[in-house]
Design a binder for these strands. Sequence first.
DNA 1: GATAGTTTCATACAAATGTTTGAAATGCAA
DNA 2: TTGCATTTCAAACATTTGTATGAAACTATC
Lengths: 229, 229
Amino acid sequence: MASDQTRSAILAAAERLYADRGFGDVTLRDIVAEANVNLAAVNYHFGSKDELIAELFVTRSIQTNRERLNELKAAEERGGGRATIEDIIRALVGPPLRGCLGPDREGSTAARFMIRASIESVPPIRRIKNREVDHLRKFAAAMRRAMPGRDDTELYWGLHFALAMAHHTIREKERLLRLSEGKCDLDDVRAIIDRVVSVTVMALTAGEVPASKPARPAFVQGRLTRQDL
Amino acid sequence: MASDQTRSAILAAAERLYADRGFGDVTLRDIVAEANVNLAAVNYHFGSKDELIAELFVTRSIQTNRERLNELKAAEERGGGRATIEDIIRALVGPPLRGCLGPDREGSTAARFMIRASIESVPPIRRIKNREVDHLRKFAAAMRRAMPGRDDTELYWGLHFALAMAHHTIREKERLLRLSEGKCDLDDVRAIIDRVVSVTVMALTAGEVPASKPARPAFVQGRLTRQDL
DNA sequence: GATAGTTTCATACAAATGTTTGAAATGCAA
DNA sequence: TTGCATTTCAAACATTTGTATGAAACTATC
């Protein structure tokens, strides 16, 4: 058998099993049985179990990050070099949400694998996630260009909350479905993205004033009353 | 040695080790060594390793949930039976945020343990978290009373996003610190709670109109422009 | 202080797991 | 075909792990 076929078979089997049963419950023996290859093949082709998991995760991560940067670039070109804050957030949360949610993605192994990786947290995946900060800096920079007057701290909190809502929706979709008794439609990805984007934009622009008065975010000063909105 | 002393020693040692090194890296042998008790003591007093972890987690969970309900009750009494939406969200996110963040909590084993439990995800903890839905329903009910006209779906999304921001801040505080190069102050818990509450209230009240026009949330209809705010 | 119930202890068990090994098979170029 | 490198394979290795056992030590009650 060609070397690459064994490699691919292992990758496919591993992704499927991890997606279905989680990292804790799947052993190398499960994977090689599913892939119909020899036990030693994993260490021969990947070096170790952790490197296999890492390769699975980086592949999907790179995919998401590339989509994010493509969307960001497209938005910047539309705006003549400067994207709107809304489009920046959309480029940030759209790809992972589209990648993990939606009715067509239900059966997608890749989607289920990434949801798993978001819920459980194994060392090789943690290591890769830690490198994500560099990627996020590009979005922070774009946000800074989109909202020049805004305090950096506010931008970071906005970026952070956007990711919070996106990731938490992916990770806790079952619970939200159960809590809302099915009322929250988790298949309408477009609407979810709109929701996350609009809340984030609201948070980022709250308290912002045209130009005269100094920008002083209302929500860090204390409690907020209806009149403030 | 009195029976309870061994039990407590195991609980304390386990919480400390899990807090420091995570669930994946700590074995029963590590725990009993730290607690200076015999290996068999764990199974004698707790039945199994999973039941030990479960007991640790439920203890802290019950604590948080009680604080939440106390705050909710206090807010409802202040408002004559009906709490404001702001106070409800505050009661929801305040306790876990205060429990896990802040300079004084830095050395707290309980805080570090709960952060760990939020990052990693082991079966016994997952089982307990699944029961949390019943607890959250009480807050959904309170929100419904606070915003009678609002569509239920909107309330659930608001509740969901509030938890998203709170939990994600707890779980990713290191990353936010690194991304913002220390600009985001994660020790100022009061300000963080204010932030989460105000963003949530904004999300929940956006598009809401005094009474005449039908409430139609702007952010589910499509992109949001500055004028909409 | 004898007895019954509880707790501790050293040790063994049994199973699972990632990894390694060395030979056999296969592929491929000269 | 020969020879060399790559790949596959069965088997074994070496730990690690949670759990169980049965005797010993301890405690409290009568």
